[in-house]
Amino acid sequence: MIVGQRKINLTPWAFLALPLTFYLIWVIAPVVQTIGYSLTDYDGVTFDAAFIGLENFRLLFTDRIFWTALANNVRWLIFFALLPIPIGLGLAMLLNQGYQGSHFFRTVLFLPMTLSFVIIGQIWGWIYLPRAGALNTLLEFIGMSGFTRPWLSDPGTVTYSLIAAGTWRQIPYVMILYLAGLQSVPTDLVEAAMIDGASWWQRFVRVVIPMLLPSTVVAVSISIIDSLRAFDIVFVMTRGGPFNQSQVLANFMYIEAFNNYRMGYGAAIAVIQFAVTFTFIYLYVNYTMKREQAR
């Protein structure tokens, strides 16, 4: 087919027609629509939503729950970037030495990745139970009764308790990424450094870490994007409580939109969540596209 001067190849578009239509209806259009809703007072029940400009955002910025949720999301982000990366790398280095049984250890460590967040939330709820909970009874057993507390109803510990449950699943994921990355570190390069008299630490910092840069970029950006998406664990374990102390944007949005029928307001929360995530999505997509181009 010829449009103007340009010849358009129709075959790829014929193949893309169905997937793109699906994507357009259920993913792309909704993103645009949500931005639209965020500028209205849509309540999800009546159809005549009024355009109210940036009123939702103005309200949001004076909403204390919003700031608590945002601060908690920053906590999730910091811990998801700081904990799983070094621990995952350490475990990958440990299991990459080729000892017998490494495969078994890897399998066990990886099991949490197969669980639904709902189940993770339930099991970790038993760990944090005030009286019979695994954590408190362990602390009592080792003579540290002073540290016991109701982990999920203490405003000071609740968010960190949820993050710990999340990292139990995230660390193995990062470990797997690094294990794959380590396959691409050429052994002769490491051996050459060894012959040159480089110590273990020098080899690790000068050879291995730079070679693992691609894995690190992926692991960090995915962990950050995941930390900003945290929903199920919070929803199942605390619903954001006590008194919104463990609230995160994703859960706050759900409650406002679907429990309080403030869809316009909820959309505004989603837009903020999206805006925060966008930087990291942009970095990841950009990086991936460059790698794809290189193939």
């Binding site: 209806i25 909704p30 949500t34 949005m253 679907f258 989603a270 999206f274 995530t277 794809e292």
Partner: peptide, 25 residues
């Protein structure tokens, strides 16, 4: 290139960005 980028970006979007329109649709 654009199509691929849209597919990659879409899979990373926070679900909250889709909830209301998908529910309504």
């Amino acid at each position: 290139r654009v199509v691929l980028m849209v597919f990659i970006a879409g899979m990373l979007i926070p679900f909250q960005m889709l909830l209301i329109p998908v529910f309504r649709f």
